[in-house]
Nucleic acid binder design. Structure first.
Length: 584
DNA sequence: GCCGTTTTCGGCCCGACTGTTTTCAGTCG
Protein backbone atom coordinates (compact mmCIF):
# COMPACT_ATOMS: atom_id res chain seq x y z
CA UNK A 1 0.00 0.00 0.00
CA UNK A 2 1.82 3.07 -1.21
CA UNK A 3 -1.12 5.48 -1.44
CA UNK A 4 -0.02 7.71 1.39
CA UNK A 5 3.54 7.75 0.11
CA UNK A 6 2.44 8.76 -3.39
CA UNK A 7 0.06 11.38 -2.02
CA UNK A 8 2.85 12.85 0.11
CA UNK A 9 4.98 13.13 -3.03
CA UNK A 10 2.42 15.37 -4.72
CA UNK A 11 1.71 17.42 -1.60
CA UNK A 12 5.40 18.17 -1.32
CA UNK A 13 5.71 19.06 -5.00
CA UNK A 14 2.65 21.31 -4.66
CA UNK A 15 4.29 23.21 -1.79
CA UNK A 16 7.43 23.85 -3.78
CA UNK A 17 5.53 24.90 -6.91
CA UNK A 18 3.39 27.22 -4.86
CA UNK A 19 6.50 28.80 -3.45
CA UNK A 20 7.75 29.27 -7.01
CA UNK A 21 4.53 31.17 -7.78
CA UNK A 22 3.43 28.55 -10.26
CA UNK A 23 -0.31 28.93 -10.81
CA UNK A 24 -2.94 26.16 -10.73
CA UNK A 25 -0.54 23.26 -10.82
CA UNK A 26 -0.25 23.13 -7.02
CA UNK A 27 -4.02 22.93 -6.80
CA UNK A 28 -4.13 20.11 -9.33
CA UNK A 29 -1.39 18.23 -7.47
CA UNK A 30 -3.14 18.63 -4.13
CA UNK A 31 -6.42 17.46 -5.56
CA UNK A 32 -4.73 14.39 -7.04
CA UNK A 33 -2.93 13.71 -3.74
CA UNK A 34 -6.21 13.93 -1.87
CA UNK A 35 -7.90 11.51 -4.25
CA UNK A 36 -5.05 9.04 -3.89
CA UNK A 37 -5.15 9.30 -0.10
CA UNK A 38 -8.86 8.57 0.01
CA UNK A 39 -8.92 5.95 -2.70
CA UNK A 40 -9.74 3.00 -0.47
CA UNK A 41 -7.85 0.83 -2.92
CA UNK A 42 -4.18 0.12 -3.37
CA UNK A 43 -2.86 2.38 -6.12
CA UNK A 44 -0.08 -0.08 -6.89
CA UNK A 45 -2.67 -2.80 -7.44
CA UNK A 46 -4.61 -0.55 -9.80
CA UNK A 47 -1.48 0.19 -11.79
CA UNK A 48 -0.51 -3.49 -11.88
CA UNK A 49 -3.95 -4.48 -13.10
CA UNK A 50 -4.84 -1.75 -15.57
CA UNK A 51 -1.64 0.23 -16.13
CA UNK A 52 -1.72 3.96 -16.75
CA UNK A 53 -5.32 3.83 -18.00
CA UNK A 54 -6.40 2.66 -14.57
CA UNK A 55 -4.71 5.69 -13.03
CA UNK A 56 -6.29 8.26 -15.35
CA UNK A 57 -9.72 6.84 -14.49
CA UNK A 58 -9.25 8.34 -11.02
CA UNK A 59 -10.79 11.82 -10.95
CA UNK A 60 -8.15 14.54 -10.76
CA UNK A 61 -5.48 12.36 -12.35
CA UNK A 62 -4.68 13.00 -16.00
CA UNK A 63 -1.91 11.97 -18.37
CA UNK A 64 0.87 13.91 -16.72
CA UNK A 65 0.18 12.95 -13.11
CA UNK A 66 -0.37 9.32 -14.15
CA UNK A 67 3.09 9.36 -15.74
CA UNK A 68 4.62 10.64 -12.52
CA UNK A 69 2.85 7.97 -10.46
CA UNK A 70 3.95 5.24 -12.85
CA UNK A 71 7.52 6.50 -12.70
CA UNK A 72 7.42 6.53 -8.93
CA UNK A 73 5.98 3.04 -8.62
CA UNK A 74 8.58 1.65 -10.99
CA UNK A 75 11.71 3.52 -9.98
CA UNK A 76 10.96 4.82 -6.49
CA UNK A 77 11.31 8.44 -7.51
CA UNK A 78 10.16 11.09 -9.95
CA UNK A 79 13.00 12.76 -11.81
CA UNK A 80 11.09 16.02 -12.24
CA UNK A 81 10.35 16.30 -8.53
CA UNK A 82 13.95 15.57 -7.60
CA UNK A 83 15.04 18.56 -9.68
CA UNK A 84 12.30 20.63 -8.13
CA UNK A 85 13.50 19.87 -4.63
CA UNK A 86 17.01 21.02 -5.46
CA UNK A 87 15.72 24.43 -6.44
CA UNK A 88 13.52 25.01 -3.40
CA UNK A 89 14.84 26.34 -0.14
CA UNK A 90 15.48 23.71 2.48
CA UNK A 91 12.78 24.58 4.94
CA UNK A 92 10.13 25.83 2.52
CA UNK A 93 7.48 23.35 3.60
CA UNK A 94 8.02 24.14 7.25
CA UNK A 95 8.05 27.89 6.70
CA UNK A 96 4.73 27.73 4.89
CA UNK A 97 3.27 26.27 8.09
CA UNK A 98 3.85 29.56 9.90
CA UNK A 99 0.59 31.44 10.24
CA UNK A 100 0.53 34.59 8.16
CA UNK A 101 3.33 33.47 5.88
CA UNK A 102 2.22 32.33 2.45
CA UNK A 103 4.01 31.58 -0.79
CA UNK A 104 4.32 35.18 -1.97
CA UNK A 105 5.70 36.71 1.20
CA UNK A 106 7.99 33.77 1.58
CA UNK A 107 9.40 34.30 -1.90
CA UNK A 108 10.10 37.92 -1.00
CA UNK A 109 11.91 36.85 2.14
CA UNK A 110 14.08 34.38 0.28
CA UNK A 111 14.90 36.76 -2.55
CA UNK A 112 15.56 39.84 -0.43
CA UNK A 113 17.02 38.36 2.74
CA UNK A 114 18.09 34.85 1.77
CA UNK A 115 15.74 33.27 4.32
CA UNK A 116 15.55 29.54 3.68
CA UNK A 117 14.80 27.91 7.00
CA UNK A 118 12.85 28.55 10.16
CA UNK A 119 16.01 29.54 12.02
CA UNK A 120 16.91 32.03 9.25
CA UNK A 121 13.49 33.56 9.72
CA UNK A 122 13.88 33.72 13.47
CA UNK A 123 17.22 35.49 13.14
CA UNK A 124 15.81 37.99 10.68
CA UNK A 125 12.85 38.74 12.94
CA UNK A 126 15.07 39.18 16.00
CA UNK A 127 17.37 41.53 14.09
CA UNK A 128 14.33 43.50 12.78
CA UNK A 129 15.42 43.09 9.21
CA UNK A 130 11.86 42.44 7.99
CA UNK A 131 10.21 45.76 8.61
CA UNK A 132 12.41 47.51 6.06
CA UNK A 133 11.08 45.27 3.32
CA UNK A 134 8.33 46.53 1.02
CA UNK A 135 4.98 45.06 2.04
CA UNK A 136 6.20 44.31 5.53
CA UNK A 137 6.10 46.57 8.55
CA UNK A 138 6.40 46.83 12.30
CA UNK A 139 3.20 44.94 12.86
CA UNK A 140 3.85 42.05 10.49
CA UNK A 141 7.21 41.51 12.11
CA UNK A 142 5.61 41.30 15.54
CA UNK A 143 2.95 38.94 14.26
CA UNK A 144 5.49 36.67 12.63
CA UNK A 145 7.47 36.55 15.86
CA UNK A 146 4.36 35.39 17.69
CA UNK A 147 3.40 32.96 14.96
CA UNK A 148 6.85 31.35 15.16
CA UNK A 149 6.53 31.05 18.91
CA UNK A 150 3.09 29.51 18.52
CA UNK A 151 4.32 27.10 15.86
CA UNK A 152 7.17 25.89 18.03
CA UNK A 153 4.92 25.52 21.05
CA UNK A 154 2.33 23.32 19.46
CA UNK A 155 2.06 22.65 15.79
CA UNK A 156 0.98 19.09 16.38
CA UNK A 157 -2.65 18.27 15.75
CA UNK A 158 -4.92 17.74 18.74
CA UNK A 159 -6.48 14.35 19.39
CA UNK A 160 -10.25 14.16 18.96
CA UNK A 161 -10.53 12.88 22.53
CA UNK A 162 -9.02 16.11 23.81
CA UNK A 163 -10.55 18.57 21.34
CA UNK A 164 -14.16 17.47 21.70
CA UNK A 165 -14.47 17.92 25.49
CA UNK A 166 -12.48 21.16 25.23
CA UNK A 167 -14.84 22.55 22.60
CA UNK A 168 -17.83 21.61 24.73
CA UNK A 169 -16.29 23.40 27.73
CA UNK A 170 -15.56 26.57 25.76
CA UNK A 171 -19.07 26.61 24.33
CA UNK A 172 -20.73 26.33 27.70
CA UNK A 173 -18.38 28.94 29.20
CA UNK A 174 -19.18 31.34 26.35
CA UNK A 175 -22.90 30.76 26.72
CA UNK A 176 -22.70 31.48 30.44
CA UNK A 177 -20.60 34.61 29.99
CA UNK A 178 -22.90 36.04 27.30
CA UNK A 179 -25.90 35.31 29.45
CA UNK A 180 -24.29 37.16 32.38
CA UNK A 181 -23.23 40.11 30.28
CA UNK A 182 -26.49 40.60 28.44
CA UNK A 183 -29.43 38.33 29.24
CA UNK A 184 -31.03 39.29 25.94
CA UNK A 185 -28.40 37.42 23.97
CA UNK A 186 -29.58 33.88 23.54
CA UNK A 187 -26.78 31.63 22.35
CA UNK A 188 -28.98 28.58 21.99
CA UNK A 189 -27.63 27.88 18.54
CA UNK A 190 -23.92 27.39 19.00
CA UNK A 191 -21.94 24.41 17.80
CA UNK A 192 -18.44 23.26 16.99
CA UNK A 193 -17.82 22.87 13.26
CA UNK A 194 -14.83 22.01 11.08
CA UNK A 195 -12.96 18.74 11.28
CA UNK A 196 -14.16 18.38 14.85
CA UNK A 197 -17.78 18.12 13.75
CA UNK A 198 -16.67 15.62 11.12
CA UNK A 199 -15.09 13.72 14.04
CA UNK A 200 -11.69 13.43 12.40
CA UNK A 201 -9.20 11.56 14.58
CA UNK A 202 -7.07 14.69 15.00
CA UNK A 203 -7.97 18.36 14.75
CA UNK A 204 -5.85 21.37 13.77
CA UNK A 205 -7.87 23.99 15.59
CA UNK A 206 -11.35 24.28 17.03
CA UNK A 207 -14.00 26.15 15.02
CA UNK A 208 -17.15 27.37 16.69
CA UNK A 209 -20.24 28.84 15.02
CA UNK A 210 -22.96 30.81 16.78
CA UNK A 211 -26.21 32.38 15.67
CA UNK A 212 -26.94 35.96 16.71
CA UNK A 213 -28.54 39.07 15.30
CA UNK A 214 -26.14 41.42 13.58
CA UNK A 215 -26.24 44.06 16.32
CA UNK A 216 -25.52 41.45 18.98
CA UNK A 217 -22.53 39.94 17.24
CA UNK A 218 -19.88 42.40 18.54
CA UNK A 219 -20.96 41.73 22.08
CA UNK A 220 -20.62 37.98 21.56
CA UNK A 221 -17.12 38.63 20.23
CA UNK A 222 -16.25 40.68 23.30
CA UNK A 223 -17.35 37.80 25.53
CA UNK A 224 -15.37 35.32 23.48
CA UNK A 225 -12.03 37.15 23.65
CA UNK A 226 -12.48 37.82 27.37
CA UNK A 227 -13.01 34.17 28.34
CA UNK A 228 -10.67 33.40 31.26
CA UNK A 229 -8.78 30.68 29.36
CA UNK A 230 -7.87 32.97 26.46
CA UNK A 231 -4.16 33.70 26.26
CA UNK A 232 -3.77 35.60 22.97
CA UNK A 233 -6.21 37.30 20.64
CA UNK A 234 -5.02 36.71 17.09
CA UNK A 235 -7.75 38.67 15.37
CA UNK A 236 -11.04 40.20 16.37
CA UNK A 237 -13.74 41.50 14.06
CA UNK A 238 -17.48 41.92 14.31
CA UNK A 239 -18.31 38.47 12.90
CA UNK A 240 -15.07 36.55 13.25
CA UNK A 241 -12.44 36.21 15.96
CA UNK A 242 -9.49 33.97 16.63
CA UNK A 243 -7.84 33.24 19.95
CA UNK A 244 -5.29 30.91 21.46
CA UNK A 245 -6.03 29.29 24.79
CA UNK A 246 -3.49 29.07 27.59
CA UNK A 247 -2.93 25.40 26.92
CA UNK A 248 -2.05 26.21 23.31
CA UNK A 249 -5.17 25.33 21.31
CA UNK A 250 -6.37 27.81 18.67
CA UNK A 251 -10.11 28.55 18.59
CA UNK A 252 -12.05 30.46 15.93
CA UNK A 253 -15.52 31.85 16.48
CA UNK A 254 -17.88 32.96 13.72
CA UNK A 255 -21.22 34.65 14.36
CA UNK A 256 -23.92 34.74 11.67
CA UNK A 257 -27.55 35.89 11.55
CA UNK A 258 -30.37 33.28 11.68
CA UNK A 259 -31.07 33.33 7.94
CA UNK A 260 -27.50 32.21 7.31
CA UNK A 261 -26.97 29.77 10.16
CA UNK A 262 -27.49 26.60 8.09
CA UNK A 263 -25.34 27.82 5.23
CA UNK A 264 -22.57 28.82 7.62
CA UNK A 265 -22.81 25.50 9.46
CA UNK A 266 -22.50 23.66 6.17
CA UNK A 267 -19.66 25.87 5.01
CA UNK A 268 -17.56 25.76 8.18
CA UNK A 269 -18.03 22.04 8.69
CA UNK A 270 -16.22 21.37 5.42
CA UNK A 271 -14.29 19.57 4.30
CA UNK A 272 -12.83 22.10 1.96
CA UNK A 273 -12.91 19.59 -0.88
CA UNK A 274 -16.51 18.67 -0.15
CA UNK A 275 -17.47 22.36 -0.25
CA UNK A 276 -15.74 22.96 -3.54
CA UNK A 277 -17.65 20.07 -5.08
CA UNK A 278 -20.87 21.45 -3.64
CA UNK A 279 -20.23 24.95 -4.95
CA UNK A 280 -19.58 23.61 -8.39
CA UNK A 281 -22.95 21.87 -8.32
CA UNK A 282 -24.52 25.15 -7.24
CA UNK A 283 -22.86 27.00 -10.12
CA UNK A 284 -24.01 24.42 -12.66
CA UNK A 285 -27.57 24.87 -11.47
CA UNK A 286 -27.47 28.64 -11.75
CA UNK A 287 -26.97 29.26 -8.03
CA UNK A 288 -24.31 30.81 -5.89
CA UNK A 289 -23.39 29.17 -2.60
CA UNK A 290 -21.56 30.98 0.18
CA UNK A 291 -21.48 30.81 3.97
CA UNK A 292 -24.47 33.17 3.92
CA UNK A 293 -26.79 31.10 1.86
CA UNK A 294 -27.76 29.63 -1.46
CA UNK A 295 -28.70 32.35 -3.93
CA UNK A 296 -30.09 32.57 -7.44
CA UNK A 297 -27.21 33.74 -9.55
CA UNK A 298 -29.27 36.13 -11.66
CA UNK A 299 -31.44 37.92 -9.13
CA UNK A 300 -29.34 37.33 -6.03
CA UNK A 301 -32.45 36.11 -4.21
CA UNK A 302 -31.74 33.80 -1.27
CA UNK A 303 -33.43 30.42 -1.67
CA UNK A 304 -31.88 28.53 1.27
CA UNK A 305 -29.71 29.22 4.30
CA UNK A 306 -31.62 28.50 7.50
CA UNK A 307 -30.64 24.89 7.71
CA UNK A 308 -28.13 22.52 6.17
CA UNK A 309 -30.93 20.16 5.14
CA UNK A 310 -32.49 22.91 3.02
CA UNK A 311 -29.23 23.56 1.19
CA UNK A 312 -28.54 19.95 0.30
CA UNK A 313 -32.17 19.57 -0.71
CA UNK A 314 -32.13 22.55 -3.07
CA UNK A 315 -28.99 21.17 -4.68
CA UNK A 316 -30.80 17.91 -5.41
CA UNK A 317 -28.96 15.95 -2.73
CA UNK A 318 -29.98 13.78 0.19
CA UNK A 319 -28.69 15.24 3.49
CA UNK A 320 -25.06 14.21 3.99
CA UNK A 321 -23.97 13.62 7.61
CA UNK A 322 -20.83 15.60 8.59
CA UNK A 323 -18.66 12.49 9.04
CA UNK A 324 -19.07 11.65 5.34
CA UNK A 325 -18.09 15.07 4.00
CA UNK A 326 -14.60 14.18 2.88
CA UNK A 327 -15.05 14.13 -0.87
CA UNK A 328 -14.91 10.34 -0.95
CA UNK A 329 -17.85 9.91 -3.29
CA UNK A 330 -20.54 11.01 -0.82
CA UNK A 331 -21.90 13.71 -3.12
CA UNK A 332 -22.42 11.28 -6.00
CA UNK A 333 -24.01 8.82 -3.60
CA UNK A 334 -26.31 11.55 -2.26
CA UNK A 335 -27.35 12.48 -5.79
CA UNK A 336 -28.23 8.84 -6.51
CA UNK A 337 -29.80 8.34 -3.10
CA UNK A 338 -27.36 5.56 -2.26
CA UNK A 339 -25.84 7.04 0.89
CA UNK A 340 -25.42 4.55 3.73
CA UNK A 341 -27.77 4.81 6.70
CA UNK A 342 -25.03 5.44 9.21
CA UNK A 343 -24.93 3.70 12.55
CA UNK A 344 -26.35 5.87 15.37
CA UNK A 345 -25.36 6.08 19.05
CA UNK A 346 -28.67 4.54 20.07
CA UNK A 347 -27.95 1.44 17.97
CA UNK A 348 -25.23 0.22 20.30
CA UNK A 349 -26.34 -2.42 22.77
CA UNK A 350 -23.07 -3.29 24.43
CA UNK A 351 -19.35 -2.85 24.85
CA UNK A 352 -17.10 -5.82 24.11
CA UNK A 353 -13.69 -4.74 25.40
CA UNK A 354 -12.84 -3.46 28.89
CA UNK A 355 -10.45 -4.00 31.78
CA UNK A 356 -10.97 -4.19 35.54
CA UNK A 357 -8.73 -4.28 38.60
CA UNK A 358 -8.21 -7.99 37.81
CA UNK A 359 -5.58 -6.85 35.28
CA UNK A 360 -4.66 -3.21 34.62
CA UNK A 361 -8.04 -1.47 35.04
CA UNK A 362 -8.55 1.17 37.72
CA UNK A 363 -12.10 0.23 38.69
CA UNK A 364 -13.44 -3.02 40.09
CA UNK A 365 -15.50 -5.52 38.13
CA UNK A 366 -18.60 -4.49 40.07
CA UNK A 367 -18.05 -0.77 39.51
CA UNK A 368 -17.52 -1.26 35.78
CA UNK A 369 -20.68 -3.38 35.48
CA UNK A 370 -22.70 -0.82 37.42
CA UNK A 371 -21.54 2.03 35.20
CA UNK A 372 -22.20 0.05 32.00
CA UNK A 373 -25.70 -0.74 33.21
CA UNK A 374 -26.29 2.94 33.99
CA UNK A 375 -25.28 3.74 30.41
CA UNK A 376 -28.23 1.62 29.31
CA UNK A 377 -26.35 -1.23 27.71
CA UNK A 378 -27.91 -4.66 27.29
CA UNK A 379 -24.60 -6.50 27.66
CA UNK A 380 -20.88 -6.08 28.17
CA UNK A 381 -17.87 -8.32 27.82
CA UNK A 382 -15.21 -8.16 30.51
CA UNK A 383 -11.89 -8.71 28.80
CA UNK A 384 -8.90 -8.50 31.09
CA UNK A 385 -5.43 -9.31 29.78
CA UNK A 386 -4.19 -12.87 29.35
CA UNK A 387 -1.30 -14.38 31.29
CA UNK A 388 1.64 -13.33 29.06
CA UNK A 389 0.88 -9.66 29.61
CA UNK A 390 3.01 -9.51 32.75
CA UNK A 391 3.33 -5.71 32.73
CA UNK A 392 -0.44 -5.37 32.58
CA UNK A 393 -0.94 -7.92 35.33
CA UNK A 394 -2.32 -10.52 32.91
CA UNK A 395 -4.52 -13.23 34.43
CA UNK A 396 -3.21 -16.71 35.17
CA UNK A 397 -5.80 -19.40 34.55
CA UNK A 398 -6.78 -19.70 38.25
CA UNK A 399 -7.38 -15.98 38.50
CA UNK A 400 -9.42 -16.01 35.30
CA UNK A 401 -11.59 -18.76 36.77
CA UNK A 402 -11.98 -16.75 39.96
CA UNK A 403 -13.22 -13.86 37.82
CA UNK A 404 -15.78 -16.18 36.20
CA UNK A 405 -17.10 -17.03 39.65
CA UNK A 406 -17.45 -13.40 40.58
CA UNK A 407 -19.17 -12.68 37.27
CA UNK A 408 -21.67 -15.48 37.96
CA UNK A 409 -22.42 -13.99 41.38
CA UNK A 410 -22.74 -10.43 40.09
CA UNK A 411 -24.94 -11.57 37.21
CA UNK A 412 -27.70 -12.24 39.71
CA UNK A 413 -27.52 -8.69 41.06
CA UNK A 414 -27.51 -6.78 37.77
CA UNK A 415 -29.95 -6.58 34.89
CA UNK A 416 -27.18 -6.24 32.30
CA UNK A 417 -25.76 -9.44 30.76
CA UNK A 418 -22.10 -9.94 31.59
CA UNK A 419 -20.12 -11.90 29.02
CA UNK A 420 -16.96 -13.67 30.12
CA UNK A 421 -14.19 -12.52 27.90
CA UNK A 422 -10.48 -12.01 27.62
CA UNK A 423 -8.11 -9.86 25.64
CA UNK A 424 -5.82 -12.70 24.71
CA UNK A 425 -2.32 -12.04 23.46
CA UNK A 426 -1.54 -13.19 19.96
CA UNK A 427 1.89 -14.73 20.58
CA UNK A 428 4.89 -14.50 18.25
CA UNK A 429 3.89 -17.63 16.31
CA UNK A 430 0.26 -16.55 15.97
CA UNK A 431 -1.02 -18.90 18.69
CA UNK A 432 -3.24 -17.62 21.49
CA UNK A 433 -2.16 -17.13 25.09
CA UNK A 434 -4.58 -19.64 26.72
CA UNK A 435 -5.10 -23.32 25.94
CA UNK A 436 -8.16 -24.34 23.90
CA UNK A 437 -10.02 -25.79 26.90
CA UNK A 438 -9.98 -22.34 28.50
CA UNK A 439 -10.70 -20.35 25.31
CA UNK A 440 -13.77 -22.41 24.46
CA UNK A 441 -15.32 -21.55 27.83
CA UNK A 442 -15.09 -17.84 27.08
CA UNK A 443 -18.04 -15.96 25.56
CA UNK A 444 -15.81 -13.43 23.82
CA UNK A 445 -12.16 -13.85 22.81
CA UNK A 446 -10.48 -10.62 21.68
CA UNK A 447 -7.05 -11.38 20.17
CA UNK A 448 -4.49 -8.57 20.24
CA UNK A 449 -0.83 -7.97 19.49
CA UNK A 450 1.13 -6.47 22.38
CA UNK A 451 4.70 -7.39 21.53
CA UNK A 452 7.18 -7.62 18.68
CA UNK A 453 5.87 -4.49 16.97
CA UNK A 454 8.97 -4.18 14.85
CA UNK A 455 8.52 -7.52 13.03
CA UNK A 456 8.88 -7.39 9.26
CA UNK A 457 5.62 -7.15 7.31
CA UNK A 458 5.57 -10.76 6.12
CA UNK A 459 6.07 -12.14 9.61
CA UNK A 460 3.51 -9.87 11.23
CA UNK A 461 0.97 -10.69 8.54
CA UNK A 462 1.52 -14.44 9.02
CA UNK A 463 1.20 -14.04 12.78
CA UNK A 464 -2.15 -12.27 12.55
CA UNK A 465 -3.49 -14.53 9.81
CA UNK A 466 -2.62 -17.60 11.91
CA UNK A 467 -4.53 -16.10 14.85
CA UNK A 468 -7.51 -15.35 12.60
CA UNK A 469 -7.57 -19.01 11.58
CA UNK A 470 -7.88 -20.05 15.24
CA UNK A 471 -11.40 -21.36 15.69
CA UNK A 472 -11.81 -19.78 19.12
CA UNK A 473 -10.78 -16.26 18.25
CA UNK A 474 -13.79 -13.95 17.89
CA UNK A 475 -12.47 -10.42 17.50
CA UNK A 476 -9.19 -8.95 16.25
CA UNK A 477 -8.38 -6.17 18.75
CA UNK A 478 -6.80 -2.81 17.79
CA UNK A 479 -5.75 -4.28 14.44
CA UNK A 480 -3.05 -1.82 13.37
CA UNK A 481 -1.42 -1.25 16.77
CA UNK A 482 -0.87 2.44 16.17
CA UNK A 483 -0.80 5.01 18.95
CA UNK A 484 -1.75 8.43 17.61
CA UNK A 485 1.30 10.66 17.43
CA UNK A 486 3.41 8.13 19.32
CA UNK A 487 3.65 4.84 17.49
CA UNK A 488 3.19 4.04 13.83
CA UNK A 489 1.00 1.06 12.91
CA UNK A 490 3.00 -2.12 12.64
CA UNK A 491 4.01 -3.25 9.19
CA UNK A 492 1.28 -5.60 8.03
CA UNK A 493 -0.50 -6.49 4.81
CA UNK A 494 -4.08 -5.50 5.55
CA UNK A 495 -5.44 -6.99 2.34
CA UNK A 496 -4.36 -10.41 3.59
CA UNK A 497 -5.57 -9.74 7.12
CA UNK A 498 -9.01 -8.70 5.90
CA UNK A 499 -9.16 -11.65 3.52
CA UNK A 500 -8.37 -14.06 6.37
CA UNK A 501 -10.86 -12.38 8.70
CA UNK A 502 -13.59 -12.64 6.08
CA UNK A 503 -12.78 -16.26 5.26
CA UNK A 504 -12.94 -17.24 8.93
CA UNK A 505 -15.91 -15.09 9.94
CA UNK A 506 -13.96 -12.97 12.40
CA UNK A 507 -14.98 -9.58 13.70
CA UNK A 508 -12.68 -6.55 13.38
CA UNK A 509 -12.47 -4.16 16.31
CA UNK A 510 -12.76 -0.40 16.11
CA UNK A 511 -11.00 0.60 19.31
CA UNK A 512 -12.41 3.84 20.73
CA UNK A 513 -9.48 4.85 22.94
CA UNK A 514 -8.67 8.42 21.86
CA UNK A 515 -5.00 7.50 21.62
CA UNK A 516 -5.75 4.53 19.36
CA UNK A 517 -8.84 4.93 17.15
CA UNK A 518 -7.82 1.69 15.54
CA UNK A 519 -8.93 0.78 12.88
CA UNK A 520 -8.89 4.26 11.42
CA UNK A 521 -11.50 5.52 8.97
CA UNK A 522 -9.52 4.69 5.83
CA UNK A 523 -8.90 1.11 6.89
CA UNK A 524 -12.54 0.71 7.91
CA UNK A 525 -13.58 1.76 4.42
CA UNK A 526 -11.21 -0.77 2.93
CA UNK A 527 -12.22 -3.53 5.34
CA UNK A 528 -15.85 -2.92 4.45
CA UNK A 529 -15.14 -3.92 0.86
CA UNK A 530 -14.29 -7.39 2.21
CA UNK A 531 -17.81 -7.68 3.68
CA UNK A 532 -16.39 -7.83 7.17
CA UNK A 533 -18.25 -7.31 10.44
CA UNK A 534 -16.98 -4.85 13.02
CA UNK A 535 -17.40 -4.14 16.69
CA UNK A 536 -16.96 -0.73 18.31
CA UNK A 537 -15.35 -1.15 21.73
CA UNK A 538 -13.95 1.20 24.33
CA UNK A 539 -11.04 -0.86 25.68
CA UNK A 540 -11.86 0.99 28.93
CA UNK A 541 -9.43 0.97 31.82
CA UNK A 542 -11.87 2.80 34.12
CA UNK A 543 -15.52 3.88 34.19
CA UNK A 544 -14.52 7.15 32.51
CA UNK A 545 -13.25 5.13 29.58
CA UNK A 546 -16.70 3.69 28.95
CA UNK A 547 -17.76 7.04 27.54
CA UNK A 548 -15.09 6.96 24.84
CA UNK A 549 -17.57 5.03 22.70
CA UNK A 550 -18.49 8.20 20.82
CA UNK A 551 -15.00 8.51 19.36
CA UNK A 552 -15.01 4.98 17.95
CA UNK A 553 -18.54 5.48 16.71
CA UNK A 554 -17.35 8.61 14.91
CA UNK A 555 -14.66 6.64 13.09
CA UNK A 556 -17.19 3.94 12.18
CA UNK A 557 -19.45 6.60 10.69
CA UNK A 558 -16.50 8.14 8.84
CA UNK A 559 -15.94 4.63 7.48
CA UNK A 560 -19.52 4.57 6.10
CA UNK A 561 -20.65 1.81 8.47
CA UNK A 562 -24.30 0.96 8.98
CA UNK A 563 -25.97 -0.65 11.97
CA UNK A 564 -25.87 -4.11 10.40
CA UNK A 565 -22.08 -3.86 9.88
CA UNK A 566 -21.47 -3.61 13.63
CA UNK A 567 -22.09 -6.69 15.80
CA UNK A 568 -22.55 -4.87 19.10
CA UNK A 569 -25.78 -3.45 17.72
CA UNK A 570 -27.17 -7.00 17.69
CA UNK A 571 -29.25 -8.46 20.52
CA UNK A 572 -27.21 -10.61 22.89
CA UNK A 573 -28.68 -13.86 21.56
CA UNK A 574 -27.56 -13.11 18.02
CA UNK A 575 -24.14 -12.06 19.26
CA UNK A 576 -23.72 -15.35 21.15
CA UNK A 577 -24.53 -17.28 18.00
CA UNK A 578 -21.75 -15.50 16.13
CA UNK A 579 -19.30 -16.23 18.95
CA UNK A 580 -20.37 -19.88 19.47
CA UNK A 581 -17.40 -22.14 20.11
CA UNK A 582 -17.49 -25.80 19.02
CA UNK A 583 -16.31 -27.99 21.90
CA UNK A 584 -14.59 -30.60 19.78
C1' DG B 1 -2.29 20.21 -14.61
C1' DC B 2 -7.30 18.86 -14.95
C1' DC B 3 -11.73 19.09 -16.98
C1' DG B 4 -16.21 19.69 -19.99
C1' DT B 5 -25.15 19.03 -20.17
C1' DT B 6 -22.36 26.60 -21.15
C1' DT B 7 -16.18 25.15 -22.98
C1' DT B 8 -10.91 20.64 -26.31
C1' DC B 9 -9.69 26.53 -24.44
C1' DG B 10 -10.21 28.98 -20.59
C1' DG B 11 -11.74 28.53 -16.48
C1' DC B 12 -10.34 26.71 -11.74
C1' DC B 13 -14.98 28.66 -4.45
C1' DC B 14 -15.69 32.72 -1.95
C1' DG B 15 -15.65 36.06 1.69
C1' DA B 16 -13.44 38.10 6.28
C1' DC B 17 -9.65 40.23 8.38
C1' DT B 18 -5.14 42.51 8.56
C1' DG B 19 -1.57 45.54 7.43
C1' DT B 20 0.30 48.58 4.58
C1' DT B 21 -2.06 50.51 1.48
C1' DT B 22 -4.44 55.76 -0.15
C1' DT B 23 -7.83 51.30 -3.00
C1' DC B 24 -5.78 46.58 -2.24
C1' DA B 25 -2.79 42.36 -1.86
C1' DG B 26 -1.93 38.52 0.91
C1' DT B 27 -3.48 34.98 3.81
C1' DC B 28 -6.71 31.97 5.79
C1' DG B 29 -10.32 28.74 6.22
Amino acid sequence: MKNREVAELFYEAADILEYQQVEWKPRAYRKAAQMIENLGEDIEAIYARKGKTGLTEIPGIGESIADHIAEYLETGKVEKFENLKEKAPLGAAELLEIRGLGAKKMKKLTDALGIKTLSDLKDAVTAHRLKRLEGFGEKSEENLARAIEQYEKSHARIALGKALPLAEEVISALKALCQDTNPKIDLSKIIYTGSLRRLKETIGDIDILAEAEKEEAPEVMNCFVSLPDVDQVILKGSTKSSVILREGTAIDLRVVPPESYGAALQYFTGSKEHNIELRNIAIKNGYKLSEYGLYLKESGEQIAGNSEEEIYDRLGLIYIPPELRESRGEIKAAARNTLPRLIEPGDLRGDLHMHTTYSEGKDSLKTMIGRAEALGYEYIAVTDHSRSQKVANGLEIEKLKAQWEEIDKLSKRFRIKILKGSEVDILKDGSLDYPDEILRELDVVVGSIHSGFASPERKMTERIVTALEHRYLDILGHPSGRLLGRREPYAVNFEKVFEAAAANGKVIEINSQPSRLDLNDELILRAKTFDLKFCISTDSHSTTGLSFMRYGLGQARRGWLEKEDVVNTYPCSRLKEIFTKPKT
